[in-house]
């Protein structure tokens, strides 16, 4: 039973990540492409890591996997925001005013 749940989560996560890959190709630059980044790091990666954790079963290994998954989610979110800020400052130089420089 646990294997089926893991496979379902794996399929969903892989689909999300492949969708992110296609989105980064198809979405017009520069701003709409950022959606692919957040999709991959906050939906795809955690789902796949959850599938691996379910497959590994309760224990130390699953905790390590969940730590990696949370690192990916948090790191991905931070980098998506940083890349978005960089894109705004290079594409629309005068847009950000005041303390958002």
């Amino acid at each position: 039973m646990r294997h089926q749940i893991a496979l379902a989560l794996l399929t969903a996560g892989t689909a999300a990540l492949v969708l992110a890959g296609l989105a980064v190709l198809r979405l017009p630059p520069p701003f709409l492409r950022l959606h692919a980044l957040s999709l991959a790091s906050t939906l795809g990666a955690p789902l796949v890591v959850l599938a691996l954790a379910v497959q590994t079963g309760p224990g130390r290994g699953a905790v390590k996997l969940l730590v990696i998954g949370s690192l990916l989610a948090v790191g991905g979110t931070v980098t998506t925001m940083a890349v978005g800020r960089t894109t705004v400052r290079r594409e629309r130089p005068g847009l950000l005013r005041g303390n958002q420089r």
Binding site: T14, L17, V18, A20, G21, L22, V24, L25, P29, P30, R33, L34, A36, L37, A40, S41, G44, A45, L72, G76, T79, T80, V83, T86, T87, R90, E91
Partner: peptide, 28 residues
Amino acid sequence: GTIGPAIAVALHGPSHRRLVGADLAGTG
């Protein structure tokens, strides 16, 4: 499906647009 497009995006275009591909590869 993910690393391939990320590399494809990272190969051309201005540098801040290549960064999107590098970041996606860094997640994938």
